[in-house]
């Protein structure tokens, strides 16, 4: 006999038993399309879908690509908010398509989906991530210790010292924060929140010995002082990192030189 439960789960496309309280709905997805092989201009295109509102926006994009228009292009991988591939602007806010349920988007109205801002759009929802990763690399995002003789065992770290930088270890480099930042939109030179978050992760790690160097990098004219504390980044972070707070802590460390 076949594995028992799955026959029922297989009934994709029809309302599932046990979900009688949430029937399928018809929703419109308004996607900003761009393909320079076809046109230099982007255009909005509407797609209508029958979909369970408890599904993810990523599920909707897959349904469009698989059943309606195979040319729709976006990045995705894990589909549950861990890999950071599918940050996009959904109803005007930066989110991960795989962590956003349709029911939370007021699906009575068309749901808009477009590429994140401030990075060059290459095709549909795909942007050039290279400047984003360059800013990340610029803050020296790796543990630096001066000791030449490595310990045989692990370095000791108290649970409190470990907790000090816990929040910023959660970053998945999805660029939702950086591409929500008005300063970054207006001036691509700014490091952006994600790079500062990753600098914070090491500056406040008790094992690291290059905090001063990193602070000097961020003291640059394109560094932390460009932050205008609009909190867009904190709102955008799909991992719940208090990004603006982390940037403030870096600013404070620059003034007090204590971290």
């Amino acid at each position: 006999m076949a594995t028992p439960t799955l026959d029922k789960a297989d009934a994709a496309g029809a309302p599932e038993p046990g979900f009688a309280d949430s029937p399928y709905i018809t929703a419109t997805f308004r996607v900003r399309r761009f393909n320079p092989e076809i046109s230099a201009e982007s255009v909005w295109e509407d797609f209508q879908l029958e979909i369970d509102p408890k599904e993810r926006v990523l599920d909707a994009l897959h349904k469009i690509k698989w059943d309606q228009d195979g040319t729709l292009t976006f990045r995705r991988s894990c589909a549950h908010g861990i890999c950071g591939s599918d940050a996009m602007r959904i109803n005007g806010k930066n989110r991960l398509a795989c962590k956003t349920l349709i029911k939370d988007l007021n699906p009575e109205k068309p749901i808009t989906v477009e590429a994140i801002k401030g990075l060059t759009v290459l095709k549909d929802l795909v942007v050039d991530m290279d400047p984003f990763f360059q800013a990340y690399r610029d803050v020296m995002p790796f543990l630096i210790t001066k000791e030449t003789n490595e310990p045989t065992r692990e370095r000791l770290q108290s649970a409190e010292d470990r907790e000090r930088f816990d929040d910023t270890t959660k970053c998945i480099l999805c660029a939702a924060c950086t591409s929500s930042c008005p300063v970054f939109w207006n001036d691509g030179q700014y490091f952006g929140p994600a790079a500062i978050v990753n600098a914070h992760r090491f500056i406040f790690d008790s094992r690291d010995e290059a905090g001063e160097q990193r602070l000097e990098i961020l003291n640059d004219k394109d560094g932390v002082w460009r932050c205008r504390t609009t909190f867009n980044c904190t709102d955008a972070c799909p991992r719940g990192i208090e990004v603006t707070k982390a940037i403030q802590e870096v600013k404070r460390a620059l003034i007090t030189r204590r971290f």
Binding site: F142, L143, L156, Q157, A159, R162, D205
Partner: peptide, 9 residues
């Protein structure tokens, strides 16, 4: 750990 991995302690 030496590469920087933040293990729980």
């Amino acid at each position: 750990e030496k590469m920087g991995l933040p293990f729980n302690r």
